[in-house]
Amino acid sequence: MSDDKVSLVIEGREVEAPSTASIIQAYSASGGQLVTNVGCMGQGVCGSCRCMVRREGSRDVTMELACETPVEAGMQVAFVSYFQPKRPHVYDLETLTGGWQILDAIDEVFPQAKSCRHCGGCDRACPRGLDVQKGVEYAVQGDVLAAKDVFSECIMCNLCTLACPERIRPNHLGLFVRRALAALTLRPVELMRRLRQIESGALTVDTSTVDAPRQERRP
């Protein structure tokens, strides 16, 4: 590992950091107050540290997760501060009682989805590189299993929602499809049997069985 230092600009401040540091580590080590735009600190699953990054020599701005992106010399970084848009897409999963309504439900809850103009903004915004636009298209067409797979690794950072000029809120659409599918179709047989055993009182737990310690063997 090299100990090279690089300098970059984070939130308008000039910062020096080891070249192996992530953006968020560099920001914190430089004394920046870290009370928001931070979460899992490196696992890349919470989506809280989303940021806009411009690399030296490039005019493009990319969306990345600050906890997973290593610093580079000349990088410019601005956090996309948390935002909680109003929820125009309100639904109650319990009112979905059968799979036959799923197409209507998608259209009813997310009416904007069918007017996607394929600008690709969501795809460019996704720090996970998901085929967001394709996922929206699958959902609109009713190919719910395909849509479910597209959004399987979505971390709900909301950047596609921010990027969509049609206000489709693609990640929430994807999650709606995923939730509906699980709630409507997942009925594992051994789980149903076990629930019946417990609820009928046929299965209980006897706490006295551990009175004598189980022999602990060598590791």
């Binding site: 999963l93 995923r178 939730r179 599918l181 699980a182 709630a183 997942l186 594992p188």
Partner: peptide, 20 residues
């Protein structure tokens, strides 16, 4: 959790009546 819409891995991708 399933009622809230959480997915679990199943054996042979057969949700209804399948095995976890």
């Amino acid at each position: 959790l399933i009622k809230l819409g959480m997915a679990f891995d199943t054996v042979e991708d057969r949700p209804f009546g399948g095995s976890l």
